Deep mutational scan, measured.
Amino acid sequence: MSGIALSRLAQERKAWRKDHPFGFVAVPTKNPDGTMNLMNWECAIPGKKGTPWEGGLFKLRMLFKDDYPSSPPKCKFEPPLFHPNVYPSGTVCLSILEEDKDWRPAITIKQILLGIQELLNEPNIQDPAQAEAYTIYCQNRVEYEKRVRAQAKKFAPS
């Protein structure tokens, strides 16, 4: 494992614990031996107030490669969400998460999670990743928002 990646992720964890947006979660997972795995984080993004996503808490896994922060983490909703920019596998399609697009090593975990929260309610229809959600979003916004509200209710924190 890269010392650069681990040191950056340790800084990220410290900064997150000191200050993070209300309702968001970002925690490194534990290895079988109980030690912390900084390369694999369990996160959760709350649906934004005043949107059909409100009330939901959407679980996301963030996986970092050894060359982080040169390369972005892979962000994957578990379980996958109904959304035009979420692949059926759950992987998020967002330009700041793509090395050859808008990724920059200075982007923080907090910025990534806030960017994904923004994307939930403002899909990028130029870059669809899920045919069904994309089609319904474009053709029947009322039905799309109904499905999103049902999903938010399903993923409401207990």
Rank of each mutant, 00 (worst) to 15 (best):
S2A: 08
S2N: 08
I4D: 15
A5P: 08
L6I: 05
L6M: 15
S7L: 10
S7V: 11
L9P: 02
L9C: 09
L9H: 01
A10N: 14
Q11L: 13
Q11P: 11
Q11F: 07
E12D: 00
E12H: 05
R13T: 00
R13M: 01
R13F: 02
K14R: 14
A15V: 11
W16C: 06
R17C: 00
R17K: 07
R17L: 01
R17Y: 00
K18E: 05
K18P: 00
D19E: 14
D19A: 12
D19V: 06
D19H: 07
H20P: 02
H20R: 07
H20V: 00
P21N: 07
P21C: 03
P21G: 04
F22E: 01
F22P: 03
F22C: 01
F22I: 01
G23L: 06
G23H: 06
F24R: 02
F24Q: 02
F24H: 05
F24Y: 12
F24C: 08
V25M: 10
A26T: 00
V27M: 14
P28L: 05
P28Y: 00
P28A: 10
T29E: 13
K30I: 10
N31Y: 12
P32H: 12
P32V: 10
D33I: 03
D33P: 01
G34W: 07
G34K: 07
G34N: 07
G34I: 05
T35K: 00
T35S: 14
T35W: 03
M36Q: 03
M36E: 05
M36S: 05
M36T: 03
N37A: 15
L38E: 07
L38R: 00
L38F: 10
W41M: 07
W41Q: 05
W41N: 08
W41I: 04
E42V: 12
E42N: 05
C43P: 08
A44C: 03
A44G: 14
I45E: 02
P46Y: 07
P46T: 06
G47Q: 06
G47E: 02
G47A: 03
K48R: 13
K49M: 09
G50P: 00
G50R: 13
T51K: 05
T51E: 02
P52R: 09
P52D: 11
P52C: 10
W53A: 00
W53E: 04
E54H: 08
E54F: 13
E54P: 00
E54M: 12
E54W: 06
G55P: 10
L57K: 09
F58T: 06
K59E: 11
L60R: 05
L60W: 04
L60M: 12
R61E: 10
R61I: 09
M62I: 10
L63A: 11
L63H: 12
L63S: 14
L63R: 12
F64W: 06
K65M: 15
D66G: 10
D66W: 07
D66E: 12
D66A: 11
D66Q: 11
D67Y: 10
Y68K: 04
P69V: 05
S70C: 13
S71Q: 12
S71A: 15
P72N: 13
P73L: 08
P73A: 12
K74D: 15
K74F: 15
K74H: 14
C75W: 10
C75Q: 06
C75L: 15
K76V: 13
K76I: 13
K76W: 12
K76H: 15
K76A: 15
F77V: 03
E78K: 15
P79V: 14
P80I: 07
L81Q: 01
F82M: 05
H83F: 06
H83I: 03
H83Q: 03
H83E: 00
H83W: 03
H83L: 01
P84N: 13
P84C: 09
N85K: 03
N85L: 00
V86L: 04
V86H: 09
Y87C: 01
P88F: 09
P88W: 06
S89F: 12
S89H: 15
G90D: 06
G90L: 01
G90I: 02
T91C: 15
V92Q: 00
V92P: 08
V92K: 01
C93E: 06
L94R: 00
L94Y: 03
L94S: 08
S95M: 01
S95V: 03
S95Q: 03
I96R: 09
L97A: 11
L97I: 15
E98S: 15
E98K: 14
E98P: 11
E98D: 15
E99T: 05
D100R: 07
D100C: 03
K101I: 08
K101A: 15
K101Q: 09
K101R: 13
R104F: 01
P105T: 07
P105A: 14
P105F: 00
A106Y: 05
I107Y: 06
T108S: 14
T108C: 14
T108E: 14
T108W: 14
I109V: 10
I109T: 06
I109A: 12
K110Q: 08
K110H: 08
K110C: 06
K110R: 12
Q111A: 14
I112R: 02
I112C: 11
I112F: 15
I112S: 07
I112T: 15
L113T: 10
L113Q: 06
L113G: 04
L113E: 02
L114G: 10
L114S: 12
I116C: 15
I116G: 05
I116F: 07
I116N: 00
Q117C: 12
E118C: 10
E118N: 14
L119C: 06
L120F: 06
L120G: 04
N121M: 12
N121E: 13
N121F: 06
E122Q: 12
E122M: 12
E122K: 10
E122N: 13
E122D: 13
P123G: 02
P123W: 02
Q126A: 12
Q126E: 13
D127C: 00
D127S: 15
D127W: 00
D127A: 10
D127Y: 12
P128W: 04
P128S: 13
A129T: 02
A131N: 14
A131F: 03
E132V: 08
E132T: 08
A133I: 03
Y134K: 04
Y134S: 11
T135H: 04
T135V: 15
T135G: 06
T135C: 15
I136V: 14
I136H: 07
I136E: 12
I136K: 08
Y137F: 09
Y137M: 11
C138A: 15
Q139W: 09
N140F: 01
N140M: 05
R141P: 13
E143K: 10
Y144L: 01
Y144I: 03
Y144P: 04
Y144R: 02
E145F: 12
K146L: 14
K146I: 11
K146Q: 09
K146D: 14
R147G: 07
R147L: 14
R147M: 12
V148H: 01
V148D: 01
V148T: 04
R149V: 09
A150M: 09
A150L: 13
Q151W: 01
Q151R: 02
Q151E: 04
A152F: 07
A152D: 05
K153G: 01
K153W: 06
K153H: 08
K154E: 10
K154D: 12
F155S: 11
F155N: 15
F155I: 09
F155A: 07
A156P: 10
P157D: 10
P157G: 10
S158L: 11
